[in-house]
Design a protein around this nucleic acid. Structure first.
Ligand SMILES: [Mn+2]
Ligand SMILES: [Mn+2]
Ligand SMILES: [Zn+2]
Ligand SMILES: [Zn+2]
Lengths: 142, 142
DNA sequence: TTCCTTATTGATAATAATTCCTAATTAATA
DNA sequence: TATTAATTAGGAATTATTATCAATAAGGAA
């Protein structure tokens, strides 16, 4: 995700209004390393800005997705949002729900190769590994 | 996915009952190259075996997932089932909903590397590219 | 084959994340 | 400050999936 100023400028330029709700959501996403759900974003933001509704969170996330400022991923039927929009691997802990990022240079090559082989026009990619994180895995090994 | 006989044998061995419903679902998944939703599986199977309910389809898919005979993936809020359980790339057409497979040898290496870097115990992987298939992409290029 | 036990099924109700709807609010501009 | 169209809040609607449970039938024993 880019910096706040650029985001604000580009949204305003396209005729979108800069509301406190949108600022709060973008600000949170810019600062977190987390991959929060809509619900969590709502909860966190309410502490500082109590006047943000869940529907506004959803609508803002939709806008940010369209502007390619966040990616949406699905973890067990719940959408999780990722402000880290470069190609990378998301590691999902099936116990605590945490998601960690791992960079891997070859992902872009793989994507290009797959596009060639399949003749698809590729617009989005998602590389996801699930299991147990270092904290949780001890609990699941006999 | 393995062959029908092995699947039947291993389910029976573990005390699961072999019902016509389960046979029909496994049979369909074995034969299709498709990545069907629960609803589609239900519709297709009903033609041959009208006495299969949607809840049974869901429960059977749950069982097959636990036995690692199918993978579940999510496409726009709907679960899609993949009987091709080796590591591969799924290409999702955002227009017609079709999913194509592309093999890529380096996926396993990437997975191993990511596991080492992150200290995760990895149990599942999903490599997904979305865009427009060769049939659909012409409609989306000005 | 017939009978028993209990896993499985089918039908429907419940759940939960997301989307839809609309009157009230407010950002942007002059 | 007044105007106006975009946005918001909050609740209703939607929809895929899960839960519930009485009826059924698979598999084993006699
Ligand atoms: Mn990430
Ligand atoms: Mn596949
Ligand atoms: Zn964990
Ligand atoms: Zn297509």
């Amino acid at each position: 995700m880019q910096q706040m100023e650029q985001i604000v400028a580009s949204l305003r330029e396209e005729g979108f209004r800069i509301t406190p709700q949108r600022m709060a959501i973008v600000d949170y996403l810019l600062k977190t390393e987390d991959h929060p759900s809509a619900e969590l974003i709502h909860k966190v933001i309410r502490k500082k800005y109590p006047m943000v509704s869940l529907s506004t969170v959803y609508k803002t996330l939709e806008l940010l997705k369209e502007k390619k400022l966040v990616n949406e991923m699905d973890v067990e039927g719940e959408a999780r949002f990722d402000a880290h929009t470069d190609e990378h691997i998301n590691l999902v802990c099936m116990n605590c729900g945490k998601i960690d990022d791992v960079d891997e240079d070859s992902l872009k090559d793989i994507q290009v190769k797959a596009a060639r082989k399949s003749k698809y026009l590729i617009l989005k990619s998602s590389f996801e590994l699930s299991g147990y994180c270092s904290d949780c895995k001890s609990k699941f090994q006999a």
